[in-house]
């Protein structure tokens, strides 16, 4: 058996695969980003797992960049915890409104949320703590993937657009 020929052919296949792979991955909207660090979705999953291991019922805090990456991954439900009037004046794109003060009226909406998606709550940002409170309520209701965007809409508006 000509081992050299065999090795050369295999080398060509792998080289061609690498060339085609990198070229098409860049053009593909579903492409994977080469990185040493796991994307936020998995990082958040791992963080959540650690929380569960510690038997902690605390929702996790995320920042703007993490929120943006979750939005890109599309596996997310964003909840605006402010009043309907505030919600209509401007919100993070695609957010739904569950005013913290009217939580009991929104039970049906909450029940209909997918338990497999990440849920991120927010309000205006400190000193508003409605996002954190609603996130804790959601955990108590049995949702496992809950985070809150602590810096809130005030922080979001600095660099990102709002939906009206």
């Amino acid at each position: 058996m000509n081992v050299k020929k065999l090795a050369a052919e295999i080398g060509v296949v792998f080289a061609a695969a690498a060339l085609l792979g990198f070229a098409t991955n860049d053009l593909n909207p579903n492409g994977v980003k080469i990185s040493i660090n796991r994307p936020v979705k998995q990082t958040a999953d791992a963080a959540l797992q650690r929380h569960q291991e510690l038997d902690s019922a605390e929702p996790i805090v995320i920042g703007k960049e993490q929120l943006k990456r979750l939005v890109q991954a599309k596996d997310i439900i964003i909840i605006d915890t402010r009043t309907p009037q505030e919600f209509l004046q401007g919100r993070i794109p695609n957010a739904i409104n569950i005013p913290f003060e009217r939580l009991e009226e929104s039970i049906e909406t909450i029940d209909s949320l997918a338990k497999t998606s990440w849920i991120v709550t927010y309000c205006d940002g400190p000193p508003c703590d409605k996002a954190q409170l609603l996130a804790a309520e959601l955990i108590d209701m049995g949702f496992a993937r809950v985070a809150y965007y602590d810096a809130g809409l005030d922080d979001w508006k600095k660099t990102e657009g709002v939906q009206q």
Binding site: V13, L20, T24, N25, V32, K33, S35
Partner: peptide
């Protein structure tokens, strides 16, 4: 695997 190898494998292996 470390995540870097995961991404490289995801890009190259399907073409192989």
């Amino acid at each position: 695997l470390p995540y870097l190898f995961v991404t490289l494998m995801a890009i190259i292996l399907p073409w192989v």
